[in-house]
Amino acid sequence: MPRYEKIWMIFGFASLILFLAILGIMAAFMGLNPPDSLRTTVAPEKVETAPPFDQPGVYQIGPKEYRVVMLSYVFGYNPGTITIPQGSTVHFEATSRDVIHGVYVPGTNINLMLIPGHITEFTQTFNKPGEYLYLCHEYCGVGHHLMQGRIIVEPSTT
């Protein structure tokens, strides 16, 4: 191998390893992992007959801590509006009743695939008040681009 090529390869290899090490440290020690739950549901078309998706909604489970049980379907979400106070941590549990959907909240790390039969789990803290848009970002049929919801983060009064 010519000398310059060796230098080039060593440089390339070293930056690759450094880069992967950073990703690995963020994953292993800072808990920055994408959603990876192995929980499943009953048959998708019957998902509304069994907990937790028989009662989708927003549940407070602690001070500034919420659980959102979300069901998606063509072409909408239940709940379609989620209202929480500023600074809340929200644990999402979501699935689909029919085809594959997504939940994506621009400006946050919420970027979830909802696969019928599987439960997608993700936790996010909302520190900035405002009205967040969420939308479906996996093609699900003719009304795909109409599928949306809102997360309203109310400014804390204190």
Binding site: A27, P34, P35, D36, N111, L112, M113, I115, H118
Partner: peptide, 10 residues
Amino acid sequence: NEPGITSFWK
């Protein structure tokens, strides 16, 4: 970003 596959393998 989907369930059913664990983080390690991803």
